[in-house]
Amino acid sequence: MKILLTGANGQLGRCLQDLFPKTAEVLALGSAELDISNQSAVNTQVEQFQPAIIINAAAYTEVDKAESEPEQAAAVNTYAPAYLASAAKKVGAKFVHVSTDYVFEGNGTQPYIESDAVYPLGVYGKTKLAGELLVQSILPEAIIIRTAWVFSEYGNNFVKTMLRLAKDRPELGIVGDQLGCPTYAGDIAKVILATLENSAPGGIYHFCGDEQVTWAEFASAIFQQAEQQGKLAKQPKVNAITTADFPTPAKRPAYSVMSTAKISEFTAASPWRQSLATVLSRLD
């Protein structure tokens, strides 16, 4: 089985490479090896490799920076997935694309299901939604997995940022009025492989953590487990602040909890507290 992976150096890309079956022939490409916003380059690479599966784990994920770089965000989040979907269609490859909870406005009170109305607040969410729509129009059988609040032992993420800040500050102000579900990239990797192994029907699926929390509550969980594992000498005090107290260039959904009922046919929701303990044990 030939698998072409884009975004090879990101959190999800690294976790996927840890889990791919040894029998698979994997071509894992980062942005230096393949510019996925270059349609000609994408077509050439796919035609040469002839993959059975293409997994797009690449994305422009700098939510605030996207507000001042809309063209760069669109190149990676909107047009690149379309190029990959078109190339997959030409060679008859299965295609998996990863999207985000930021396609929602965040005014809900019940976990979002896949058919709920979308209304992204910022450039990042808008470009990701546009990418979803293009992929579906080109390759309806593509699998699109929306996920949220991703963390892992790799790359830059909220867990690593909190640990770094905790070593220098006795108190931290963390946003406490945004609700979401932390999700371990390794669990996303597992669900991607599960949907492929089980020949999941094409369409959109939600996959995220099994318990909703605020960023402040997520931070407290990180500090508690880090102290228990001896990664922190002492937990800093967490002061929950409002979104208004911490203005950012991009607006974020206040509520982006997603229902994993649809994808539960293939896997359970990410047990994020358990996965957090595993991630912390792997960090220096």
Rank of each mutant, 00 (worst) to 15 (best):
M1D: 12
L4Q: 01
G7K: 02
A8Y: 11
A8K: 10
Q11H: 07
G13V: 07
G13E: 06
R14V: 09
Q17V: 11
F20C: 04
T23G: 04
T23L: 02
L27M: 12
A32M: 10
E33G: 13
S37Y: 01
Q39V: 02
Q39I: 08
V42I: 06
V46G: 04
E47Q: 12
Q48D: 15
A52N: 14
I53A: 08
I55N: 00
A57I: 00
A59Q: 10
E67K: 13
S68F: 09
P70E: 09
P70W: 07
Q72A: 15
A73Q: 00
A75E: 10
T78G: 06
T78H: 09
Y79Q: 10
Y79T: 04
A82H: 06
A85G: 04
S86R: 15
S86N: 15
S86C: 13
A88W: 02
K89Q: 15
V91F: 05
G92S: 13
K94I: 01
V96Y: 00
D101K: 07
E105V: 07
G106T: 06
N107W: 07
G108S: 10
G108T: 00
Q110G: 00
Q110H: 05
P111M: 03
I113M: 09
I113F: 03
I113T: 09
S115A: 14
A117I: 08
A117F: 08
A117T: 14
V118F: 00
Y119I: 00
P120V: 00
G122L: 00
G122D: 14
V123P: 02
Y124V: 06
K126G: 03
K128A: 01
L129Y: 04
E132P: 03
L134Y: 08
V135E: 11
S137C: 11
I138M: 11
L139G: 06
L139W: 12
P140I: 05
R146A: 02
T147S: 04
A148M: 08
F151Y: 12
S152H: 06
S152D: 11
E153H: 10
Y154V: 01
N157D: 13
M162L: 15
L163W: 01
L165M: 15
A166K: 04
A166M: 09
K167E: 14
K167V: 07
P170G: 04
E171L: 10
G173R: 14
I174C: 11
G176D: 07
Q178C: 11
T183G: 01
G186A: 05
D187K: 12
I188K: 01
A189Q: 01
T195S: 13
E197F: 06
N198V: 07
N198D: 12
A200I: 02
A200H: 02
G202I: 05
C208T: 14
G209Q: 07
D210T: 10
E211M: 08
E211Q: 12
T214W: 02
A219Q: 10
A221L: 13
E227S: 03
E227N: 00
E227H: 05
Q228I: 03
Q229M: 14
K231H: 04
K234P: 05
Q235W: 00
K237V: 14
K237Y: 14
K237R: 15
N239L: 13
N239D: 12
T242R: 13
A244K: 14
D245R: 07
P249N: 08
R252Q: 13
R252G: 09
R252T: 09
A254T: 12
M258Q: 10
S259G: 04
S259E: 05
A261V: 12
A269W: 02
P271E: 05
Q274W: 07
Q274V: 13
Q274R: 14
T278I: 15
T278Y: 15
R282P: 04
R282E: 15
